[in-house]
């Protein structure tokens, strides 16, 4: 009796989760697809074509630059914490608390910090650079955490086997630990890029909302999510805003599919 009850509850929850996802996606597709015209992909934005192409390209720029900076720092920090730092080290405790706290902060706070520090104090103005640096701080905890967790999942007996053969620490890390930890690290990095793609608040206050493709690190620009936000809040181009939403969803889906594919391929290679 109670078992059926629980079973029903489980199905119901799954239905709600899946149903709402399905609903959101089809809602946006239905509203947006008809308005997905070639004009939306013109290279230059004008107030009549409200092209999303500059925003799409800016998104790739922001994500790319953010990952180029954040991935090495985050991955190396994770490696330091797990492979090098002594276990009872006070500094390690501090870094952990810092990353946990940073991960829980709402993104608008990052936006305000970025504005006060990068935009105003360092005089970067509203710029690609200020946006990217803010995004870097925002995704670092994600990458550090993912790295830490995947390193912890590598069995110590493998490290011991490597040391017992006379391998040094660096070789052990690069040849034994890294390949096993790679899928986990990679999915952390992809999670981070998803976070940047979907970000608005933190970027609005640091990159501004210029409709042009930034031509240098110091010019303003807007990402796709930001573009969509501005379009819909201005109320003039609601249809185009839905069309932009379609492209945004597709981008996220592609990133997710890519991550699933990559990590399953990597896992297969190491544990086949």
């Amino acid at each position: 009796m109670s078992r059926n009850y629980i079973k029903g509850l489980v199905y119901f929850s799954a239905l709600i989760t899946f149903g709402s996802l399905f609903f959101i996606i089809s809602f946006i597709l239905i509203k947006g697809l008809p308005h997905l015209t070639p004009a939306l992909f013109s290279f230059h934005y004008t107030t009549t074509n409200v092209s999303l192409l500059p925003a799409l390209l800016t998104t790739f720029m922001v994500v790319g630059l953010t990952l180029i900076i954040a991935t090495p720092i985050g991955v190396f920090t994770g490696f330091y914490l797990i492979e090098y730092a002594e276990k009872n080290n006070k500094g390690v405790e501090l870094i952990r608390i810092a990353t946990d706290t940073l991960a829980a902060i709402p993104s608008i706070v990052y936006g305000l910090f970025g504005m006060l520090f990068f935009v105003t104090f360092l005089r970067f103005q509203y710029s690609l650079l200020a946006g990217v640096l803010t995004a870097v701080i925002m995704v670092l905890p994600l990458i550090i955490r993912a790295t830490e967790e995947s390193l912890l999942s590598v069995k110590d007996s493998l490290r011991q086997a490597s040391f017992s053969l006379g391998a040094g620490k660096l070789r052990t890390i690069f040849k034994i630990v890294l390949p096993v930890a790679m899928p986990g690290i990679l999915s952390g990095v992809i999670l981070a890029s998803g976070r940047v793609v979907g970000e608005t608040a933190a970027l609005m206050y640091t990159m501004g909302t210029s409709t042009n493709l930034p031509d240098s690190l110091f010019s303003s620009g807007r990402t796709l999510a930001l573009h969509m936000y501005v379009l819909s809040s201005e109320g003039q181009h609601v249809n185009e805003s839905y069309a932009t939403g379609v492209v945004l969803i597709l981008t996220v889906l592609i990133i997710n599919a890519l991550s699933t594919y990559l990590s399953s391929r990597l896992t297969k290679e190491t544990t086949k």
Partner: peptide, 14 residues
């Protein structure tokens, strides 16, 4: 390198 070791649990690399 001169003193090799075999462990209790077989631990081949993946």
């Amino acid at each position: 390198k001169r003193v090799g070791m075999v462990f209790q649990q077989p631990n081949p690399f993946p």
